[in-house]
């Protein structure tokens, strides 16, 4: 399930949607959390025209901290202190940009990231809906802030970039099967057929350089070329020991005595 990959220890999660699913963004994230049993600890900002008021953003932050404090005070003194915290689902980036400046959004995202009362922050961005002139840079900025970037590439593939606290980064791609209620994923294996197809494609590209010379090879030519052993390859085939092959001449005069006998070696 996708939720196993997305609902992790990473705090800021950015979902880049290239499939125009923005209308179900909140439901999508909510379902991911629900699958992992965290559906009860979700808070989301009001959407629509209420986003134009900065006060509603501040009120939301205050609400998070107040709820946490209330929960903490409700715990009996003997119990071990559990730090309550929430999963925050932000409105989509397109909606945020309709009412607030990029600087404010980044600042707010950073505040949420630093807040002790926030377990995870989810932000949804659909490039097809980002109207800001600097949308590409803003999206790149969000990617920079995010610790987990889920990119819904096509109906059947997705990519997941995960930045771990130690500095390690993993970039994995997955196959996915999406139904209305389930999002199944499996690691994307490059099949042999796909590799062969790629090699064939490369060959086709090489065969069509756009020049006037015929530099591509027929099948027969290819076989002949592969069968030909080049001089340096012949050299490699010979035994590695330094044998001297000497064919004696008819006129050779061999001296049986050792010429170095007097050296006492």
């Amino acid at each position: 399930m996708l939720s196993n990959l997305v609902v992790t220890n990473q705090k800021v999660v950015l979902i880049i949607d290239q499939l125009n699913r923005e209308r179900i963004a909140l439901k999508f994230i909510g379902s991911l959390l629900h699958e992992q049993g965290e559906g009860a600890e979700v808070k989301s900002l009001p959407i629509g025209t209420q986003l134009q008021h900065v006060a509603s953003f501040d009120a939301f932050l205050n609400e998070l901290s107040n709820n946490n404090n209330n929960n903490a005070s409700a715990q009996s003194p003997g119990e071990p202190t559990i730090k309550p915290s929430y999963n925050v689902i932000l409105p989509t980036l397109a909606d945020l940009l309709s009412y607030q400046t990029p600087a404010y959004i980044f600042d707010y995202l950073n505040k949420l990231r630093r807040s002790d009362h926030v377990r995870r922050v989810f932000l949804w961005a659909s490039p097809a809906h980002l109207q800001h002139v600097d949308a590409d840079y803003i999206l790149a900025g969000c990617e920079y802030l995010a610790e987990l970037v889920l990119r819904l590439e096509t109906e059947t593939t997705l990519a997941l970039i995960s930045r771990k606290p130690g500095g390690g980064v993993s970039n994995k791609r997955y196959n996915c099967q999406v139904s209305k209620t389930e999002f199944q994923v499996s690691p994307l294996m490059e099949s042999k057929e796909a590799k062969e197809a790629t090699i064939e494609e490369d060959n086709v590209k090489a065969a069509d350089p756009g020049g006037t010379f015929k530099i591509e090879l027929d099948e027969d030519e290819m076989v002949a070329r592969n069968a030909l052993t080049l001089p340096y390859e012949q050299h490699n085939k010979e035994p590695t020991e330094g044998n001297i092959i000497y064919t004696p001449d008819a006129d050779d005069d061999f001296d049986d005595e050792d010429p170095d006998e007097d050296l006492l070696i």
Binding site: R21, R23, I24, K27, F28, G30, S31, S179, E182
Partner: peptide, 11 residues
């Protein structure tokens, strides 16, 4: 026309 908004995809 959106017939049904599922959790992960729209009909």
């Amino acid at each position: 026309r959106v017939l049904d908004e599922g959790s992960y995809s729209c009909e």
